[in-house]
């Protein structure tokens, strides 16, 4: 395991004082790889927080070029990068923050062709994709390969998050056993909503890697930022789940 350099010890000084984290936890972050798909409203902020926290390697999977309509929430995308690849914009911004960060940029969304490989390269997966097809693929591969997956979601001023640990918790297909019929690709949202739940997603990933705290295992945290109601709902594995097969 690679040790922290003097520069890293100085950079992470404040979080090294977090009980149960310390130098050992920070070294685990440095030696970890996290897959973030995609780098949109959720994934941008997840990646930014993980880069700031000192995760060693980020795999960023996101197809397409930066559009005007990305800029209200996709905080790694900038106006001067309009029309250029999103992953390049993300990589550039993350490197400004943390030049030590190793980034593997994949200019693709998660598909049947790349899901197994990309999940296999990561220690932790943060699911920040807009389509349930991508989410179900990441969930299936995470369960198959025994990798923890943090699932972040949002709609309007609502947001939710849970952490899936194969063999211990409900998986995404336990939660949603059928393809959701009402979900639409375009939906109302503010960047502050995606950013809020993304910070929680980054914190879950940090806890999983550093091995402290209590991740949201079998718990679905829900937020309604219209009323600022926050709840933690007990969820459960589904009998005969086609993915985790409980």
């Amino acid at each position: 395991m690679k040790k922290l350099t003097e520069e890293e010890l100085a950079t992470y000084e404040w979080q090294l004082d977090v009980p149960e984290h310390g130098v050992e936890g920070q070294e685990r972050l440095k030696n970890s790889t996290v897959l973030v798909s995609r780098c949109g409203g959720l994934g941008s902020v997840v990646a930014y927080e993980l880069a700031a926290a000192g995760v060693g390697t980020l795999i960023l999977a996101h197809a397409g070029n930066v559009k005007h309509s990305d800029l209200n929430r996709q905080l790694l995308m900038t106006h001067d990068w309009l029309g250029k690849p999103r992953v390049e914009s993300a990589e550039r911004r993350l490197k400004e923050l943390n030049p030590r960060l190793n980034i593997i940029s994949i200019p693709e969304n998660i598909t049947e062709n790349n899901a197994a490989k990309l999940v296999g390269m990561a220690d932790v997966i943060v699911d920040a994709a807009p389509l349930f097809e991508e989410r179900f693929l990441m969930n299936r591969e995470a369960v198959k390969q025994g990798k923890p997956l943090v699932d972040c979601a949002m709609y309007e001023l609502e947001a939710q998050i849970t952490t899936i640990v194969p063999g211990e918790t409900a998986c995404l297909s336990c939660l949603y056993p059928e393809h959701p019929v009402a979900w639409k690709r375009r939906f109302p949202v503010f960047g502050a909503v995606s950013g809020t739940i993304a910070c929680l997603g980054a914190m879950e990933a940090i806890k999983l890697i550093s091995e402290f705290g209590e991740p949201l295992k079998n718990r679905l945290l829900t937020m309604d930022m219209r009323t600022m109601d926050v709840h933690t709902i007990q969820i459960k594995q589904r009998e005969n789940c086609v993915v985790c097969g409980v």
């Binding site: 995609r38 699911d127 972040c152 949002m154 609502e158 939660l175 949603y176 959701p180 979900w183 995606s194």
Partner: peptide
């Protein structure tokens, strides 16, 4: 009653 949400 919660309908499923995703993200992006």
């Amino acid at each position: 009653l919660m309908s499923p949400i995703s993200g992006g």
